[in-house]
């Protein structure tokens, strides 16, 4: 798995690149610009946090990067491939195998048990049921839910549901994990555990992690932080520059 990640890193310098991405929502007669031209470049193997106040457009950017929505203008490249040129099959393939998604609201399928949720992407990817079950059990073990694979989402706590979601995101060994406010619905400690888990996956498996968040705990784990404000990239910081920055940040956010 590590070698595969290394290959990806050699082959494609940028895991994700956006060029002048604009997203407009039409609401009646008004047109709302959620993104006003965003350029970001994310290297394979990086841990990136997209930070910004709510309504700044970070979730919209997250949807664009993940191929979950189409930009009004501009381009999104994943592994150097322009995703606006992909047909339905290729887009499904991308979502299935290249990217793993984690959401603030967990978005587990309520009628399925933990293991069924985790194995669904593997079934879409054409894995046999037995192989999928084996791998699913392994992944749930990895996120610390080995004992609860037959539980349904509603029988699990929020933190446990998010762990299932993490395991599901890893189902087809994605190159990129996209997490939209993964700690938003969790208490401090559980949130911290999820961040640890993401950091671990990033370090051990070389997975590129991109996480939209306004949780300052995330800063510590990130290689770079992309600040979004009012639909634009406000600034991009590396973690080693962060010491100075964090004071102003907290000042801004808590004000």
């Amino acid at each position: 798995m590590a070698t595969a990640a290394a290959e990806v890193q050699l082959k494609h310098e940028y895991a994700v690149k956006t060029l002048g991405v604009v997203k407009e929502y039409v609401m009646g007669k008004q047109t709302l610009q959620a993104l006003k031209g965003v350029d970001v470049e994310i290297r394979a193997g990086e841990y990136i946090s997209i930070m910004g106040p709510s309504g700044s457009g970070k979730s919209t950017l997250f949807n664009m990067i993940g191929g979950l929505d189409k930009p009004t203008r501009g381009k999104v490249y994943i592994d150097e491939v322009d995703i606006s040129g992909l047909d339905a099959f290729e887009l499904a393939w991308l979502r299935c195998r290249k990217i793993g998604y984690i959401f603030q609201t967990f978005n587990l399928i309520p009628v399925m048990t933990a293991i069924e949720n985790v194995t669904l992407p593997m079934i879409f990817a054409g894995m046999t049921t037995q192989d999928a079950m084996d791998k699913g059990a392994e992944l749930l073990q990895l996120v610390g839910l080995g004992e609860r694979i037959r539980h349904k989402p509603l029988e699990l706590s929020g933190g446990q549901q998010q762990r299932v979601a993490c395991a599901r995101a890893l189902a087809n060994d994605p190159a990129i994990i996209l997490a939209d406010e993964p700690t938003g619905n969790l208490d401090l400690r559980t949130g911290h555990e999820i961040i640890e888990l993401l950091r671990h996956l990033n370090k051990e498996k070389g997975v590129t992690v991109i996480s939209a968040t306004h949780d300052l705990k995330m800063l510590d784990a990130s290689d770079r932080i992309i600040w979004i404000r009012d639909g634009r990239v406000d600034k991009i910081e590396r973690r080693d520059e962060l010491d100075i920055a964090i004071g102003t940040v907290e000042g801004e956010n808590e004000a």
Partner: peptide, 8 residues
């Protein structure tokens, strides 16, 4: 959600 997981 299913579409996010790669469903057509």
């Amino acid at each position: 959600t299913m579409k996010c997981l790669g469903a057509l």
